[in-house]
């Protein structure tokens, strides 16, 4: 009987030790003050900022370094104006279709399709419907309208201004025009 008690005690200890391993909690650290930054890390919480988050949007009326002002407004008139007048500042030597394709396939191809025919994977799987082909006559997209749409979004499409920077947006625009030309062939 004594042996039985000893065995159960051993099992109980083992169980209690192993059951402490909880994957939903982080492990112990030796010197947490060496692990945790004194300065603000990205995305952390802090009462010093509005809403308690460090990640803030730029103050209204300011432009971050490396960014420039896009003066055409997010309105129907702005769209028409961009469509008619906005031109790609990248010249033919700066346009890089390899990078353009890489970016396009990540950010646009999932809905618009890698060929630009509006048959991306999400459309094929019927998650998102009604994506137009780039050669759609009713829309008659131009480089200005493409850039405006990437910048502000249009209807159900959201803005991609925070995922790709200005130069990348123009690379994508150039690549979309190439896809459009290929579709119209």
């Amino acid at each position: 009987m004594k042996g039985l008690i000893k065995i159960t005690a051993l099992v109980a200890i083992l169980v209690s030790v192993t059951s402490c391993q909880d994957n939903a909690r982080p492990n112990y650290q030796y010197f947490p003050n060496m692990y945790e930054s004194v300065g603000y890390e990205a995305y952390i919480e802090s009462d010093a900022f509005e809403g308690g988050v460090v990640a803030q949007i730029p103050v209204e009326g300011t432009i971050a370094r490396g960014h420039s002002l896009f003066e055409i407004p997010n309105t129907l008139e702005g769209y028409e104006e961009a469509k008619a007048n906005l031109k790609n500042p990248l010249d033919s030597t700066a346009v890089d279709f390899v990078r353009g394709k890489e970016l396009y396939d990540i950010y646009c191809g999932i809905c618009h399709g890698t060929k630009g025919n509006g048959k991306g994977k999400l459309v094929e799987r019927e998650k998102i419907l009604g994506i137009p082909s780039y050669d759609d006559a009713g829309r008659a997209i131009t480089e200005g309208s493409i850039y405006h749409t990437i910048y502000y979004g249009k209807n159900a499409m959201g803005s991609y201004a925070n995922q790709v920077n200005e130069e990348e947006r123009w690379q994508i625009t150039a690549y979309v025009l190439k896809l459009k030309a290929d579709l119209e062939k």
């Binding site: 509006g118 019927e126 419907l129 009604g130 994506i131 137009p132 209807n155 159900a156």
Partner: peptide, 8 residues
């Protein structure tokens, strides 16, 4: 409908 209208 799915190709033309469903976007909006």
């Amino acid at each position: 409908f799915n190709t033309n209208c469903a976007a909006c």
